[in-house]
Amino acid sequence: MPRHAAPAVTAADSAPGIVRLALELRASWELGAALAAMAFLRGAPNGDGHPVLVFPGLGAGDLTTVVMRRFLCERGYSAHAWQQGLNVGPRPGVLEACVARVRQLRAEHGRRVSLVGWSLGGVYAREIAKMLPGDIRVVVMLGAPFSGSPKATNAWRVYQLVSGEKEIDAARFAALKVTPGVPTTSIFSRTDGVVAWQCSVERETAQSENIEVHASHIGMGLNPTALYAIADRLAQPEGQWRRFDREAHTGIKKLLFRDPQRATWLNTVFGLY
């Protein structure tokens, strides 16, 4: 199989099991790891100053993306919060406000805007890129549930509670699977305990790809491996997008981006792969 081919997957119809859900407890470790790894992460590719809009996950707000945005600012980007309070789903006016925010940043900087979305925030980023392809430079999603069954997530009940939606319109959900017409990267983890990993696998095209990392769902936006991958994707010169090359890294970076297909004893024992 080609190195960059999408993993062979079938549609996910159920949420991650109890083992993966229990592994979400490592999220606090990922925050500590991110802080401890900041010196190393300073070796991540530098940015060119273009604006990046960061979207939080379900039930979360801008406070949860502070570490990511601070990291991106240190790498040379102009990182911005979404400024829409808690993400409780597509309530009236939110999508319009996000579109206006993108246009504002495009006008202020005179450059295309990159979008980074965590979980449900990745769905927002994906859809906004479809609405404003001429204003978007790159889309990066982390554990975003844009495929499979809308109920293939352990956050489904939470979504119903905070959004007020009892069911998701089938046609609207099907439209989410359409890949944006701009360079798009989906970062996912097979050990995601909230969203079935199959729901986060992008259909690969000349402008879309998948990067697999070892991370929890709750801690993905704090995970050093994911942060490095985000920086790598955003650092590409505009108009010269190329796929992420895991094999190009050496030394400690090789360990950081170890082959996720190589099962460890823990993966085997708990059936994570």
Rank of each mutant, 00 (worst) to 15 (best):
I136W: 13
V158L: 15
E167H: 14
E127H: 09
P133N: 07
K151R: 15
L120Q: 12
K130N: 03
V182T: 10
A125D: 04
L176D: 07
G110K: 02
G110Q: 01
T153V: 08
L132E: 14
R137L: 11
A144Q: 05
A155F: 11
F173N: 00
Q160F: 03
L120W: 14
E167P: 00
S147W: 07
G143S: 13
D135M: 01
F146R: 05
P145N: 14
E127M: 11
G134P: 08
G117F: 03
V182L: 06
P180S: 06
V116F: 11
A170Q: 12
G148K: 06
G117P: 02
P183L: 05
P180W: 01
G181T: 15
P180T: 00
S147P: 01
L142V: 09
S119R: 11
K177Y: 02
R126F: 00
A129L: 09
K130P: 10
R111F: 03
L115I: 04
R157P: 00
A125Y: 03
E165W: 03
R111H: 10
V158F: 15
W118C: 00
A144F: 00
K166S: 13
R137V: 08
E167D: 14
M141Q: 11
A175W: 05
W156G: 00
G148E: 05
A171I: 02
Q160M: 12
R111L: 06
L132P: 12
W156E: 00
Q160N: 10
A144T: 04
P183D: 02
R111V: 05
M141T: 15
N154I: 06
V113I: 04
N154F: 04
M141P: 01
P133T: 11
G110Y: 00
V162R: 08
A144S: 15
R157H: 09
L176R: 12
L120V: 06
R157N: 06
L115P: 00
A175C: 06
G134D: 15
P133S: 09
V158A: 15
V178T: 14
L120D: 09
P183V: 02
A152M: 07
G143H: 06
R172W: 13
A170E: 15
K166V: 13
P180E: 09
I168Q: 14
G134F: 08
H109L: 01
I128W: 15
Y124C: 07
N154P: 02
T153A: 12
A152C: 09
G143Y: 08
A125F: 04
A129Y: 10
V123N: 01
P183S: 06
P145L: 11
S114G: 04
A175K: 13
F173M: 01
K177T: 13
R112D: 02
I128E: 04
L120T: 13
A170R: 08
K177A: 15
G148W: 12
A174T: 05
I168E: 14
W156N: 00
W118Y: 14
V138P: 06
F146P: 08
V140K: 03
G134Q: 13
A125Q: 03
A155H: 10
T179K: 04
T153H: 11
F146G: 09
